[in-house]
Every structure is written in C-alpha cells, then in structure tokens.
Design a protein around this nucleic acid. Structure first.
Lengths: 228, 228
DNA sequence: CCACGAATACTTGTATGCAAGTATGGGGAG
DNA sequence: CTCCCCATACTTGCATACAAGTATTCGTGG
C-alpha cells in the first residue's frame, strides 16, 4: 500500500500523526484500558505501514500508555494508582515551579490574556460545552507555564499525565466541579496578577489536587479499567 | 547482515542497547556537538540494521540530543543555553520536590545507605577517580528520589538533563569543585536525616546550581560546541 | 577562466519480508 | 469423556528494499 503525496502533504509526518491519533484514542478511552492492539490491524485502519505504527507505539510506551510484550502483543495500559500518583507528582512539581516564576515575570498584558481564557471557560460552562471547557483548561495551564520561560514544564507535564488525563476525561460527564474549577483558576491568575509566587503556587497546587479527588468515583464506576 | 542469537542473548534488545550506547556517546561528547550522524554508518558500526538505530534516534530527539532533518541528515545537537536552563529547571523542580518527601519518609536505614554512598564518593575523591565519583553522584541523587516513592522524578530528570550532563562531563577534568560537592551532599543528607524538608530542599537546590556555574568556563574552552 | 546545469551520491521516511516465539484449537490416545 | 500433543495462526523484533528529496561535483558551454 502506498501513501499518496496528497495524504503526506495533508498533515504531519505519518509517525507524528499516528502518535497523536493513538494517544487521543487511549486518553479518551476510545481504546479501553487493557484492550489488545495489533500493529498490523492499526496499520490497515490508519492506511500506513507497520513502521510508523511501531515508532508511535514505542513512544507511547515511554508515556506508560501501552505495554509491549515481545512475541505476544501490545496492550493499552490499565489505569494504575502508582502511575496516577507519579503523574500528579510530576505535574505538581513542574507546574507549581513554573507558576512561581510566572508570578514574578508576568506583565499586565500577559495577565489580560489569562483573564481572556477564563472568560472563554465561563462561556463554555454557560453553554454546557464540557469539551470546550477542557480545551481552555489546557490552554490556561499551558499559558501559565509558558509565562515562566520554561514551556517545557507544560510539554513534560502533559506527556507524563496520560493516566491522569484518562481520569479527567472519564469524569467529564460529571460537570459538578466545573464552576469550582473556574473559581480556582481565578485564584491562581489573581495571585499571578498581584505578583505573589507563594500564593500562586498554593492555589495552583490545591487546584491540581481536585483531579485526584475524582479517582475513587471513577474506580467504582469502571473497575475493569484499573490495574490488579 | 544478520545478528546472531548469541549477540541477541548478550544484552538487552537491540533498540535499547543502541539508545544507551548513542546517548552515552553524545553525553560524553565522544560524538561532538554539531557532528553529523548517518543511520547507515551507525548501523554498520553497531552491527544492526537501520531499524533499531532509527528508533533510538527518534527517542534521542525527544531528549533534544539530536536533530533530525528529513532528507538531509541527523546531527548531534549543539549545547543550547535554553536547553541547559530548561534541564536545570526540570531537575530542580522534580528533585527538590522529591527530596522534600524523602525527608519526611526516610527511615534510619535509608539514611545509612545514603551515608554509605557519600563514603564511597570520598574514597573516589581520594583516589582521584573522577569517573567513579560521578557514578556515585548519580547513585546518591537517584536514591534521594527513590526514597520519596516517586522514582520517576529521577528517570524524567535524567532524560531531560542531556545538555546539562554534557556540561558536567566537560567539567570533569576540573575536579576543583569535587570536595565542595561532597560537603553539599552531606548537608542534604543531614537535613534528610533530621527530617527537615525545607532545609533539604534548600541545600539540594543550592547544590544543583553548582553545575550551572561551570557553563561559562566550558563555553570559553569549547565555543564550537555551543549554539549560534 | 567562470558560470551553470545535470547526473550522482548521499540523506531520511516508509513499506515489506523474514525470523523467532507464544497462545490456541483440534484431533487422537487413554 | 478427558487429557495431552502438535499444527497453526497469530504476535513483535529486526532486516532490507524502495521512494523522495537535497547537496555536491563534474562536465560543458560561454
């Protein structure tokens, strides 16, 4: 099977495209935790050969999102409490360190941009558009990291947060927390506005721990998604 | 070219072995910053095909240690100030967060193990065995992370520290700092022993910043190794 | 002698073929 | 009927062949 020039020009390189697609499928639990994946099958369904599939799967294994057992099969990782704790630890460490710097460096126009994101989150909340809310949630956290001058905090945090994001996605159907989350964002941004790194860190840390609080609920409603 | 069963049984999977070899070659500056690499050439020299070479190089690109330009070539990344700053930021964030937890959790036998590592560092210093000193340096930092219950802090920190470690290696020939570093280790371990997370974090952060201080020297002595 | 162009010798990206190992299912023996 | 063994149909890991693009160099024309 050959891939046409049109297809190649379409998006990124096949490997990058496949990685993004597969990661999204796993994090959204469209691919269920524990599900078996076949390189051959994926290659056919995505219209590429096994090579880019393999390279994407290897990268996903770095993310702890798949487990590759030689001569046996590749499986979507079940959600693991240790992996969740690790992801939470990494996210807290990197993002709180970043937001401290951001609180020291942010200029008024930077803070205005953060305010604008929160406004859009409120709109999404009013429209009950949960998916859009989460898009701006990511956008806000990324902006907070970028302002620190270490955008890498967000990229690493994201890559390490696969297990955590599955929890987030599964709890999206319970938008009870959402207005609470928005108010927490306001607290963080206000601390950045006032240039108070300690308070910004404290508020962000408390905010990040909300995700974790959903774990027991998810574990009850989807026990087969979890390890052991 | 075929790879014999003996060779396969020898070490790890070819991909992992190649990754380790290439990373070591880059971090030790055996492969010079800016040097061009050829997949075909590496494949011949390491006695494997291009496939495991490619997969290793892709992973090294994630580490920002190589730059892959399609249809043009693969190059060892030149040392970049931004990459060093980012690595320092990640290392500080993750390791100080970990050592805070370790200071709260460490049992006496854990601290004894840390003491033992420092003793070996002193021995290596007495023997002027700089390489061995750095082995135990890594060992100590890894142990401090493991004690926190988040060994991932060390693995991520290491993967992100490629550019930083090249600086470390280049400054190994100047062992003036070494006894100073050992005394800083003592400060960190003592704080852990006393169960003082704040002091442990402070001492570790100060210690981690020593590496950075060597950057200007290295930049003067190896200007061609740096970006722009 | 200089400039320009085409062929050549590379490069990485992708596709495909082969090797080795494991689970499984069906058939035969007890 | 049950248990065991072997053939089979998968799996991933690695090797290799092909496609597409770029820099270089050599040769030719001005």
């Amino acid at each position: 099977m050959r891939i046409s020039i049109a297809e190649r020009a379409n998006g990124a390189r096949a490997r990058a495209r496949v990685y993004t697609l597969l990661r999204e499928a796993i994090v959204s639990t469209e691919f269920h935790p524990g599900q078996r994946l076949s390189e051959t099958d994926l290659a056919e369904r995505l219209g590429v050969s096994r090579t880019p599939i393999r390279e994407a799967l290897v990268r996903l294994r770095d993310d702890r999102l798949v487990e590759i057992v030689p001569q046996l099969g590749t499986y979507v990782s079940r959600i693991s409490r240790q992996a969740i704790d690790d992801a939470q630890f990494v996210r807290e460490s990197l993002e709180t360190a970043a937001v401290r710097l951001s609180a020291q460096r942010a200029r008024p126009e930077d803070v205005a941009a953060l305010d604008a994101i929160i406004t859009r989150q409120r709109e999404a909340f009013r429209d009950s558009d949960v998916a859009r809310f989460y898009v701006f949630d990511d956008e806000l956290h990324r902006s907070l990291c970028d302002l620190s001058g270490h955008g890498i905090a967000w990229s690493l945090s994201q890559r390490a947060s696969g297990h955590l994001n599955r929890i987030r996605r599964l709890s999206m159907t319970l938008p009870a927390y959402i207005d609470e989350m928005i108010e927490e964002h306001v607290l963080v941004v206000d601390a950045v506005r006032r240039g108070e790194p300690e308070e910004a860190e404290r508020a962000l840390r408390e905010h990040l721990r909300m995700v974790i609080s959903a774990v027991p609920d998810i574990e009850r409603s989807h026990p087969d998604y979890f390890e052991s």
